[in-house]
Design a protein around this nucleic acid. Sequence first.
DNA 1: TGCCAGGCCCTCTTTAGGGCCTT
Length: 329
Amino acid sequence: MRTATMCFSILQGPRFKIHTLVNFWSGNFHSWTRTYSNSSKLHGSIVNGLEGGKSKKWTRRPVTTKAEERAKRIHSSKTSSIRHEVFDGAVSTNATLNINKTEINQFQKIQYYDIQKIIAENKDLANLVTVVAFDIETTGFSRENDGIIEFALQVLQGGENSTFQTLVNPERNITNSHVHGITKNMVDRPGVPRMRELIPILLQYVKSHQKPGGFIMWVAHNSRSFDVPFLLSEFSRCSIELPPNWLFLDTIPLARELMKSEGSKLSKISLQALREYYGIPLIGSAHRAMSDVRSLSLIFQRLTYDLKLTMPGLVERSFLGSDIKKKKS
DNA sequence: TGCCAGGCCCTCTTTAGGGCCTT
């Protein structure tokens, strides 16, 4: 049972703004216990060094923004075939996924516009924004000297293959295995992608969940200070630009809002503190990406409910990759 | 000798410093 099973497209019209978002999240409140009661996939076997669950082949969905249609007509299509399969989140090497490099490049070059302005001015936000909770595990805290070793996400609107997870070969030593339990032996093997191999897959995966002409809202805990700067550094090292239709949301400011709200007994704002505050049980190991993503997904839904947040409210609190300061050289 | 992660928030503050949060 997936956490998010309701379709976001039911959220229609500005006069339902508050209730629609609440209804969407609240629908998931009823499913979270069932989610945890059937979460054996988090304890699944290691497949090619990757934590995975039941096998489901990922099939691409057509995405038909006008810009991309134009891009498809323009490019000379040299298609590279990377053999990958998503085991409900774990990347393995058994099936074929066609990655068109030119298409990805064009995808990155879709008009540069004021994403937040466009979303804010659009009355039908539900049909524009895909909300994705994500988490990374890294070799340390330095975005310059450390690398990502695990990536996991969950598309909160649900649907087919709504979760994605993989270990990542950071191509460097791992000195903090005591934190997450991920060792060099686990990532230094053929089935585990490097970031430069994972990013094209990630772009395609996210694109397959993107609404036509829509946007992706990435949600993580402490994303402004940690996850997003790390992601930007990895994209930069791979000479790949962040898609212009991505925006980010940090749940820490939301937790602070809740902490200051009347009647709230929340005293700390760590992921663990929020999980305990909401009575969400830990499934799997803390500091493993997918486990933290599942916790975050439920915490985020509860936060938006408690703070009575609407989608415009979330967009207002979001930020862009360009808002992250680059380290002075 | 100096650096060692970086951003945000709070307060005994703003010409600053300490704590929290992420791995």
